[in-house]
Structures are given as C-alpha cells and as structure tokens.
Computed example of a mutant assay.
Amino acid sequence: MQGVAARGLAAGVCVLGLVATATHAYAWEPNGDVSGALKSKQVEAKASQKIHFSGHTKSTGTGGGNLKATGGNWAPPPCWYAPTYTPKALKKKVGDSPYSLTGRAPDNGRKKQEVDESIRHYYSSGEYKDFNLKKQGDGSFWAAVPNPNEKDAAKRESCTDLPFWVPNGEQPDRPDALSPRILAALAYESIRVPDTKVELNPSQRQTVNLPTWVWLDKGTYHPLHVTATADLGAGHSISATTTVKPDRLRLQPGTGNAALHPASGECVVNGEGGIGTPYSKGRAKDTPPCGVTYQRATGGNATYPLKASLTWKASWHGTGNAGSDLPSGEYGGEQDLTVQEVQSVN
C-alpha cells in the first residue's frame, strides 16, 4: 500500500510553506495548499510542525552569507518527517475533496480514483482504524516536510512515505524522522557568517617584492552559533545548537607571479584565537606569518583579485546529550589590489 499511494499523498497532504515569524525565527508548517483548485480547502493541522531558529541566523545583520560545506558530499536533509496531523486533521484532509490527495482534477482517470480509495482504506480500516480518532491527544501523524532551501525539486519531494502514527514523546526509529541531528543540520544551513575581508599592510597600493601582511580582525571573526528548536506537541520538544569557529584562512593571490606566506597559502588560527599578525612599524621587510609578496606590478588600471576564504570548524550538541562534529564550512571574498613597481613603502 505504501508504495502504491505514497506519491499521491505526498503531493496532496504534505505540501508545506515557509513562514517568517518574529524574533528572527522561521517555521515550516502545513498549509494544505496543493493546487489552485484547492486554495479554498486549506486545513489547519492541530499537531505542531514548527522549527524555530535563534542566534546568528541568515535573518540577522547585513553582508556575509551561509557556509558551504567542504569535502565529501554532505548536505542538509532535502526533506524529513515530523508531527503534522492530529487524527481529526488527517481525516478531514483525506475526506475534504475527491482530488485533495493527489492535487489532480477528478477527470484524470480511473487510476487516480483508485489511489484515493486505497489511501482512505489505509487510514479508515486498513493499517489504522478510523484514523486513530480514539487516540486523539495521545500522538500525531508524522508526515513529509520538504526543505524549502533545497533547490532540487526531486530531492525536495523525495520523502514519499504516507503519514505514520507516533505516540507522544516517542522518537521514530528512522534516520529521516525529525531529530536533534536533523535540527543541527538545519541550524548549520541557517547560520550566517560575516564577509571574509582581510586587513592588509600596506592598506592601499602594494609594492613589488615587498611582503603584504594579511590578518583578520579578531573582533569580527569569533565563534557563532544557531539553535534550532522543534515543538513535537503535548509538551515535548527537541533542540540542537550548531557552533562554528574560525579555523584557517586560505589565500589565493590572483596571479602566478606571487609568493605566499606560508607557502601553502593557509594561515591557521594562532594561540590567541586570531589569524595572521597585525603589521607593526619597522617590519616592512620581514616575512609575515600570513601574507603574500607580489613579484610583478599590475600596470595601468589592472588589479590582482586577492581571494581570501575562511574555513569554519563546526560541531553541535542537542537534546539527550547528543552531538558530534559537522563538516567544516567555507566562506570567502575578494579584494582587488594594485601593485606598484617601487622599491619603497609609502
């Protein structure tokens, strides 16, 4: 039964929207909006299906952006299952319209009608008896929730199982059910880091064969965190906090006629929590712990695009003492530099 009707119900009962709420929080919640023909038949699910984010989210501040995971193919979940419908809400949804399950008009053929009837039977007298109405208040039906930030529609709609019953306070034994681990991944996806803009000396024009010192302002680049909390209903909730910390800065000088310091181009966090060392008077010819020496002038109105990418280490902890590391993330920026053919510092 699951394989026959899952896609129809996933398209009909599990369409969710992104809703902004106060205090820089976001929530995914069911709206029952399947197609233009069903806009007047929205059903408010009584079971809770909200995820709230707090901390350094993408709704706070200006500039900066979200991290891109480095290494491997890790990505936030494209969809998951979460408490969505009470027995009454699901029964109303399934019986609301002759085409509310698939989002198609009733003249789309006999096969569609058979799918509808199979789903109704599944919840009325098959796997469940009368939609579990006798258990109203004791649990909820968990349904598919597409991640609105997932750009691939096929992945976003890949959770196609029918809604299933979960008693209050219980966590489904399946990796795609909402959990602190999934909340941590969604918090990672929501965290916003500042623009990667390095400090330079010289601050204006650079000079051929004299090192350019590079460092990051410790006051701007410090640990950040986002907490994601989900209300599971009946007084139960779970949460996870994802924390990211600056780890290393990768420099790309924008030309092959340059020497990096260190040679790898990666400047790691030092013992004081900073990256690189601010320039001090009298060290113009010293080799900086983090920097670049340009060996050819730019000429005319040309510039070299110095690219600086900051890697952030990530970890999380959540309900039930759960927690572990997450993939490191990277966020970078570019600064156009002019290099002059003068053997002195202005």
Rank of each mutant, 00 (worst) to 15 (best):
V4K: 11
L9M: 14
V15Y: 08
H24C: 08
A27V: 04
D33R: 09
L38W: 11
Q42K: 14
K46F: 09
A47H: 10
I51R: 06
I51H: 05
H52L: 06
F53E: 07
S54P: 00
H56I: 00
T60D: 12
T60E: 14
G61D: 10
W74I: 01
P77F: 04
G95Q: 11
P98G: 12
K111C: 04
E114M: 11
E117H: 10
Y128E: 07
D130E: 15
L133K: 14
L133V: 15
G137M: 09
G137V: 14
D138Y: 07
S140W: 06
A144M: 13
V145S: 09
P146N: 04
N149F: 15
K155R: 14
K155W: 09
R156Q: 15
C159L: 12
P163W: 05
F164T: 02
G169D: 06
G169P: 08
D173C: 00
D173K: 08
L178D: 03
L200N: 03
G219R: 02
L224R: 15
A228F: 10
D231A: 09
K245T: 15
L249Q: 01
R250P: 01
A259I: 15
L260E: 05
E266K: 07
S280E: 11
K285P: 03
K285A: 15
P288T: 04
P305N: 02
A308N: 00
T311V: 03
S324R: 14
G329M: 04
E330A: 13
Y331K: 06
G333M: 06
Q335L: 06
Q343L: 13
S344G: 10
